[in-house]
């Protein structure tokens, strides 16, 4: 690998170093804090009775059905909403920061005035954001496994790896959406708004649509359903779920790479 390719990825990675560390610390703190309360819930019959009093829709929407079990506790507190949503936001923010935001501020101009194809510049930044996302996810996994061992959750390691990999791929999909929009138009507010908006909408569709018999079939439109519809914390994940997230990511990135060659570069 030559110096130019390393620089196209390494430069943006260095720029994201601090943000990546903060995202890692934030997610690690969330997981550690959440898992630390598990011993208080473990085997609590009172809590199960309280949940049984809630309307079925609320129990379903917030994933409270198996709250007293380790997998149910993790789903309700971390992996049904918070962790995937934070990873989606991290991916969109990091991708935007290295693409649309850099271009709109004029900082990309000097780089694009070098003998480099602008597609290579955008791809380098997309890969860098993906690497940052992978680093965050690996740290997340390490903290999760450590916390699991510390409080004796007893979740299968393979299932945890699958769940966090699905979170990372869901983030990659939304990060790729950010790259695609940045390729079409370098407007940071547009990239952030659409990227995070689609993420939140997907979450709402996957968690609330099943409550209505009319809307329930449409939940499959949501990438969140593709990722977590198979209960990855308690059973093996089908390969198609990974592919369903990875393939559109590649397509969206490609759209961004094609689009960026067909427009003017924004000035400062």
């Amino acid at each position: 690998m030559n110096g130019r390719i390393l620089e196209l990825v390494g430069g943006p990675l260095r720029a994201m170093r601090r943000a990546t560390i903060w995202w890692c610390l934030g997610l690690a703190a969330l997981i550690a804090a959440t898992i630390s309360i598990w011993p208080a819930f473990k085997g609590s019959s009172g809590l199960s009775q309280a949940i049984d009093q809630l309307p079925t829709g609320v129990v379903q929407a917030f994933g409270l059905a198996d709250f007293g079990t380790p997998a149910g506790f993790l789903r309700a507190n971390l992996y049904d909403f918070f962790v995937p949503l934070l990873i989606v936001i991290a991916a969109v923010v990091l991708a935007n920061g290295q693409t649309a935001s850099e271009e709109a501020s004029g900082r990309l101009e000097l780089y694009l005035a070098q003998p480099i194809d602008r597609r290579a510049v955008l791809l380098g930044r997309a890969i860098a954001a993906l690497v940052a996302l992978a680093v965050i996810s690996v740290l997340l996994l390490i903290v999760q496994l450590g916390a699991d061992a510390a409080v004796g959750l007893g979740i299968d390691t393979g299932y945890l790896v699958s769940t966090i990999a699905l979170c990372a791929l869901l983030g990659a999909l939304h990060g790729s959406l950010a790259v695609a929009i940045a390729g079409v138009r370098a407007r940071p507010s547009l990239v952030l708004g659409v990227g995070i908006g689609v993420g939140v909408a997907g979450c709402v569709v996957a968690s609330l649509f099943p409550l209505s018999s009319v809307l329930a079939p449409w939940r499959h439109l949501s990438p969140w359903d593709w990722a977590f519809g198979g209960n990855s914390l308690e059973q093996a994940t089908d390969l198609w779920r990974y592919a369903a997230l990875a393939v559109p990511s590649v397509i969206l990135t490609t759209i961004g790479l094609v689009a960026v060659t067909r427009r003017d570069i924004s000035g400062a």
Partner: peptide, 21 residues
């Protein structure tokens, strides 16, 4: 032929936006 052209030139932009970090 942008890449081939830019290989033979250097540039100072009017509006300087350098990576501060």
């Amino acid at each position: 032929d942008g890449v081939a052209l830019r290989r033979r030139l250097t540039y100072v932009p009017g509006e300087l936006r350098l990576p501060d970090r």
